[in-house]
Amino acid sequence: MLLIMLPLMSMFSLARHEALVSDPAKALKEAFQRTDAMFLRKAKRERLRSGTTGVCALLEGERLHVAWLGDSQALLVQQGSPVILMEPHKPEREDERERIEALGGCVTYMGCWRVNGTLAVSRAIGDIDQKPYVSGEGDVTTHIFSGTEDFLVLACDGFYDAVTSSEVPSLVLGHLQENDGDGQHVAERLVSAAKEGGSSDNITVMVVFLQDPAKVLEDFLAHASVEAEPLFDFGGGGAEAGSDHAG
């Protein structure tokens, strides 16, 4: 199963990649690079200055491959707890700052850390004016399933700027509890939480249950302490909702 939050050209690049079956991690990473190259050619022809970030996940048997470019993120929840799979590409990362400065660029603080005083993301598809400082090279990581994983959340920075990783399980499990284990509209629930948290950026969220949502809730309640406070109270809902790019 392929879960993708990327321009359509990225999906096509990946689907046609010769190493998709034999080496999914390589295919995912190179799909980002090919897409960036394609978009830069288009940007030069049409004088485009925009860009986008992206994140995707490929479920291959007992392996979960996550690829990302920029600050869109994938978060795994396992037995009710968040599992950080990746580190977004932001200018304040030491390795990103060193890479940018080695190329002759700079990282400055203007409300947040920015590349050359402009973009708040250090890697992206497009953004032709900031190449090569804003790289088009993605990263890939692989997680081996243990069978205890609950769900996966893919979302852009407009979500994660307002909702922390530690809040995600509470939001999803709260929705399940209020809806008798029904996972419908849970992505909308997360989008609403980000809006209520003050996000004014584009917000895209995709939630993929790795077990039946009713079982996820049942397992969580079974392990919860009898004295634990009632589950969470947030508002929202779906399977996908929103848009992308950190600017």
Rank of each mutant, 00 (worst) to 15 (best):
E96M: 10
R49Y: 07
E196V: 01
E92W: 13
W68A: 00
G70A: 08
E94G: 05
H175P: 03
Y160A: 05
G198Q: 11
R99P: 06
V121I: 13
S13L: 12
Q79M: 09
G181T: 12
A222D: 11
E167N: 06
R123D: 10
L20N: 01
G80Y: 00
D127F: 11
D233M: 09
L40C: 12
E30W: 08
L231N: 10
N179I: 08
L69I: 15
H143W: 15
C112P: 02
A43T: 07
R189I: 00
R93N: 14
M86P: 00
V55C: 07
Q130R: 04
H143L: 12
S199L: 09
G147M: 11
A57D: 00
L103D: 12
E94T: 14
H89Y: 05
D95G: 03
E46M: 08
H245P: 00
H175E: 11
L58R: 04
P91W: 07
M110W: 10
G54D: 02
I125C: 10
A246V: 12
P230N: 07
S10F: 06
V163W: 04
G51C: 07
R189T: 10
G51K: 00
H185L: 06
L6N: 09
F159A: 05
A67K: 02
A37V: 12
R63S: 14
T52L: 03
H223K: 07
D157S: 06
P82W: 02
D219A: 07
I125E: 00
S10I: 00
Y133F: 15
D212Y: 05
L152N: 05
S199G: 08
I125M: 14
L8H: 14
M38F: 08
P132Q: 12
L2W: 09
G111P: 10
G197V: 02
M5N: 13
V208T: 13
L217H: 01
G51W: 03
F12I: 12
G238V: 07
V168A: 08
T204G: 06
L85G: 03
P7W: 04
A19D: 07
F234P: 14
T164Y: 09
G111N: 11
A162K: 04
T142S: 15
L48N: 01
Q78M: 10
N202P: 07
A43I: 05
G70E: 01
A155S: 13
D161I: 06
V55R: 01
V107I: 04
Q130D: 11
V172P: 07
A31D: 04
E30N: 09
G61A: 06
K44P: 00
C106L: 10
G104V: 10
V121R: 01
D212K: 13
G147I: 12
A214F: 06
A228Y: 01
M110K: 12
M110A: 12
S170Y: 09
D219F: 01
D157F: 03
S166G: 06
A124M: 08
M11D: 13
G237M: 03
H89M: 05
S146L: 03
Q184R: 15
F159K: 03
S22G: 11
L217C: 04
V168Y: 13
T148D: 15
T204L: 03
H223E: 13
E60Y: 02
E149C: 11
S243R: 04
G183W: 02
G238S: 10
V205A: 15
F32R: 02
D139Q: 14
E188C: 03
G235L: 05
A25H: 09
C106N: 08
R93T: 05
H223I: 09
A214Q: 13
F151H: 04
F12M: 11
Q33F: 11
L103K: 13
G237V: 03
G198D: 09
